[in-house]
Amino acid sequence: MDTVKLYLKSMKMLLRSQMQYPASFIMQTIAQIVMEGGEMMAVLLIIDRFDTLHQWTGGNLLFFFGMMSVTFYLTECFGRGVTGAFPSLVRSGHLDTFLLRPRGVLTQVLCHAIDPRRIGCIGVGVISLILGSRQSAVIWTAGKALLFLESILFGSMLILGLFLIEAIFCIHSVKSIEVVNALTYGGRSACQYPIDIYPRPLRILFTAVAPFALVLHVPSAFILDKPIYSLPGFAAFLCPAAGAAFFLLMYGLFRKAMTYYRSTGS
């Protein structure tokens, strides 16, 4: 609880300091809206040309797209310490400072940065979700709402876990991180669309290795009343836990890696 309070206080402070440059903030937020808007437009244009994709209607596709973009950019907004700032923390030696304080390293890394510009991307995602939910005529129930939140929460953990791999590489001063990026950003691109449209190897990759399908698609499909992987209803509530498991695994490896940390010497 104490840690959560510390995190919230840090966020408040960071926000205040970022708002010292409002013009730059507004400009960059607009850029983000255009960026994510462009991605959403691609989905709309695809729907315009193809109407459906397997069993999924255009509204369904918008819902899947919105799920991914809200989850991904929420993580990048609030987890920026891990998703963006980490390499520079190592290079600048700032990580040393974190080790000098009586708190967990990951806690402090998360407390270190916030990226409020992502609000633009999240906004686009929310619009896509609303449109998708309307066009799919989703009947919302308390259970579905709960599942929706669960999916986003565990999805964030999964994405945070993926970025932790990059951090681990970084601690061991490995430079070519493109391979990890392929999994993280490739996962984002691929899993904007439901998993069942992909061939087997990709399905396995995004179900068993980086379980976007379990965390985002299974719940989304349940909300849209079109279950995938022929799973029973309660499974939709269980599958997202895979995101937490993935995060915990990576967190363990991260802690292990920290014992090998060699600070950049002066």
């Binding site: 695809i46 994709l53 070519s176 392929a182 490739g186 691109s189 691929a190 669309y193 449209i197």
Partner: peptide
């Protein structure tokens, strides 16, 4: 090498998507 790997992977995902789209219509 990393860039080529990454770009190949993205290409494969896109090809898979268009194959699926074309299968329907």
């Amino acid at each position: 090498i990393g860039g080529v790997f990454c770009q190949m992977f993205f290409g494969l995902i896109l090809v898979a998507l268009y194959r699926a789209l074309y299968a329907g219509r």
